[in-house]
Write a protein that binds this DNA or RNA. Structure first.
Lengths: 304, 304
DNA sequence: TGGGAAGTATCTGTTATCCAGATGGATGTG
DNA sequence: CACATCCATCTGGATAACAGATACTTCCCA
C-alpha cells in the first residue's frame, strides 16, 4: 500500500478538527474511513501520527512535523487544479510585462498584487529594460505588454492606450548653484550639467527633456538621485522617485521662472495588434488603464 | 473521480519516457493502466495533456505547464516519505545551532552543506547571538549545540569538545599611528583605542584580549573592520575576517614586538549533558570536531 | 459514582475500483 | 507489404474502499 491523497486529506482534516469523527463529517465520509485511512498512513510511514490514549486523538511530535508537509502537498494539488482550470479557460500560462522605470513601482506593486490573486497560475515575467525601448520589446515579441513613455510615433503594429501623467520634478543638491537662486531661468539650467536616463534608441520623445548643454547619461533614476545628491548635476526625475528616495530629504527642488508646471510625462500601455492576449493579459490591460498614477498631494516646490 | 498520485506518476512517467508503454514498463504496470490513468487525469482536469495524433503521444502546451506542477507534487511526496523515514529512525525534526561569530562562516558553510544533504528533513535553526553567550543559550535550552570560544569555567551541565584554533590578527588603518611604527610595543597598543566585540555576559575569557585603556564595544567583527578602516581604532579580529573582508586590502597588520604569535583563540563545541542529541545532532557533533579550521597559508605580517 | 454523549477501532457484506491481459486499429519501418 | 510497436478499449477477476453496525473507552455532568 502506498501514500494516497485521501490519506493525507484524512490526516490533515483529523489534525485540524481534532477528531476523526469530525474529520469524517467535514469530508462527507464515514468515521471508519477516516480512522482506517489514518491508521494505514501510520503503517505506511511507520510513524505514529496521533496519540490515541485520550478521548480525542492528539498529534505526536512526528505528526506535528508531518502535518506541515502534508498540508504543502495538498496545497500543491489545489494549485495544480487551479492551473488546469486556468488553462482550460484560456488563461495564458506566461505573461511578459516590460515596464519603463518611469512607471511608479508602488503603483505597479498594487496592480501585481491583485493580479497574483486573480491569476495565481500565471507565470509572470517583469522586464525593466534599462538601455532599450519598451516598445521595441513588445514589437519584437520579447514582451506581451509594455508600460512606457508616450511616443509620438509608434510603430503601426502596436496598439496603445493612455494611462495618465507622471509628474516630473527638477532636483539638485542643497549646495548646488541652482539651489542658491530664488527662481531658476532656462539659461541658468542650460549652464549646469544635466543627468538624464540613458536611452539607446533614438527616441525623440525622450529628448524633449534635454535642456542643458552638458549631459551625463545614467541607467537608472535611482542612481541619478544619488549622483544629484553628490552635486554632480541636476536632473528631472519622476515625482515619486524624488519623494520616495532615501536621499529625498537631502535634495531641493528649485523653482523655475519660465514654467510653473511639473513637466508631466504621459505614460501609455502598448501591445502588439497581431498577438492576442490571453485572459490574464486582457485583464491586466484593462486594469492598468483604470489605475490612477500617484500625484503630489500638494503643489510644493521644495522637497527638502 | 478525483486527482490521484498514481495518475500523476503515470503522467510524469509518460511525459518523460515519451510513450505510455514505456511509462508502464518503468512503473511496472500494464500499458492499459497508464493509458487509462492519463485519460482519467485529462477528463478530471478538463485539459488535453497529450496530443495523440502521432505514433507517440506529444505533450500539449497545457501538458507542458502541468508537468512541472505534477513533478513538484511528486517531489513533495518523496520529501514527505523522507521526513517520515528520518523521524522513524530517531532523527530529530529540528536542531538549533548557536554559533559564535568568531567561527569561520566558510567552514560553517561546508559543514551545513553536507548536513543538508544528509538530513534533508531536519529543520535547522542557526543562531548568531551577538550580545549573548553561546554557552548560556545551550545551557538554558535555547540551542542544542554551540560553537564558541573556549571558556575556562564551563557550567558543569555542559559537555564540550575542542575544535582547534582560530588565529587572531591585529589590524589598523594604514594612516593609524600604529601603522607608522616598525614594531609595536605593548605600551603603544594600550595608548590607542581598541575595538572589541561586545559581550553582555561577564565572560572573563573574552577579556583576555583586552589590552588598551580605552575600548569601544561593537556587536560584530565585520562592523569592527569598517570602523578600523575609518581609523577609529585598532582591533584583534579572526584571521578569516581580515582576509575575507572587502575592506581587507585597505588595512594593515602591524608587527608586535612582544609576541610573535597570532594570539590564537581556541574554539569548542558545547552541548548539554542531559539533553541527548538526535541522530542529526550527533552526526554534526562528530563532523564538526573533525573539520579543520582554516589557517593562514603563510605567516604574513601585513595584509595590505 | 454512575449514566450518557461522543469518540475510536474493528468487523462485515456490498459495491466500486483497479488491474492485467486480450483485441483491434493506427503508425512507422525495413 | 509484413512486422514491430504503439494506443484505446473491453473484460473478468482480484482488490480495495466504503457505509453501517458493534463493542469499547473517555470525558462530562448530574
Amino acid at each position: 500500500m502506498s501514500l494516497s491523497l485521501e490519506q493525507l486529506q484524512a490526516f490533515v482534516a483529523a489534525a485540524e478538527t481534532g477528531s476523526f469523527s469530525a474529520a469524517a463529517r467535514r469530508l462527507g465520509k464515514a468515521q471508519s474511513v477516516v480512522s482506517t485511512a489514518v491508521s494505514n498512513l501510520e503503517i505506511d510511514l511507520d510513524n505514529a501520527l496521533f496519540d490515541r490514549s485520550g478521548r480525542y486523538p492528539a498529534l505526536t511530535p512526528a505528526g506535528e512535523r508531518l502535518l506541515v508537509e502534508a498540508r504543502v502537498i495538498l496545497e500543491r494539488c489545489e494549485h495544480f487544479r487551479g492551473v488546469a482550470k486556468s488553462l482550460g479557460e484560456g488563461v495564458e500560462s506566461r505573461l511578459v510585462l516590460a515596464v519603463d522605470e518611469l512607471y511608479p513601482e508602488e503603483t505597479l506593486g498594487v496592480l501585481l498584487e491583485e493580479f497574483s490573486h486573480r491569476f495565481p497560475a500565471v507565470e509572470l515575467e517583469l522586464l525593466f529594460p534599462v538601455m532599450e525601448d519598451v516598445s521595441r520589446l513588445v514589437l519584437e515579441g520579447g514582451a506581451d505588454l509594455g508600460l512606457m513613455w508616450r511616443q509620438e510615433v509608434l510603430p503601426p503594429a502596436l496598439a496603445f492606450r493612455g494611462l495618465g501623467w507622471v509628474p516630473m520634478q527638477i532636483i539638485c543638491a542643497p549646495d548646488h548653484p541652482l539651489a542658491a537662486q530664488q527662481r531658476v531661468g532656462w539659461e541658468e539650467l542650460k549652464r549646469h550639467r544635466q543627468l538624464m536616463v540613458a536611452v539607446r534608441s533614438d527616441s525623440e520623445e525622450k529628448m524633449r527633456l534635454r535642456v542643458a548643454a552638458e549631459v551625463w547619461w545614467v541607467e537608472s533614476h535611482w542612481v541619478i538621485v544619488e549622483l544629484v545628491k553628490r552635486e554632480l548635476g541636476w536632473a528631472f526625475v519622476p515625482w515619486h522617485v524624488a519623494a520616495n528616495s532615501p536621499a529625498a530629504a537631502q535634495l531641493v527642488s528649485p523653482e523655475l521662472d519660465f514654467d510653473d508646471q511639473d513637466w508631466p510625462v504621459a505614460m501609455e500601455l502598448v501591445w502588439h495588434k497581431q498577438r492576442p492576449l490571453g485572459k490574464a493579459g486582457a485583464w491586466l490591460q484593462e486594469r492598468v488603464s483604470h489605475q490612477p498614477l500617484p500625484q503630489p498631494s500638494l503643489r510644493r516646490r521644495s522637497s527638502g
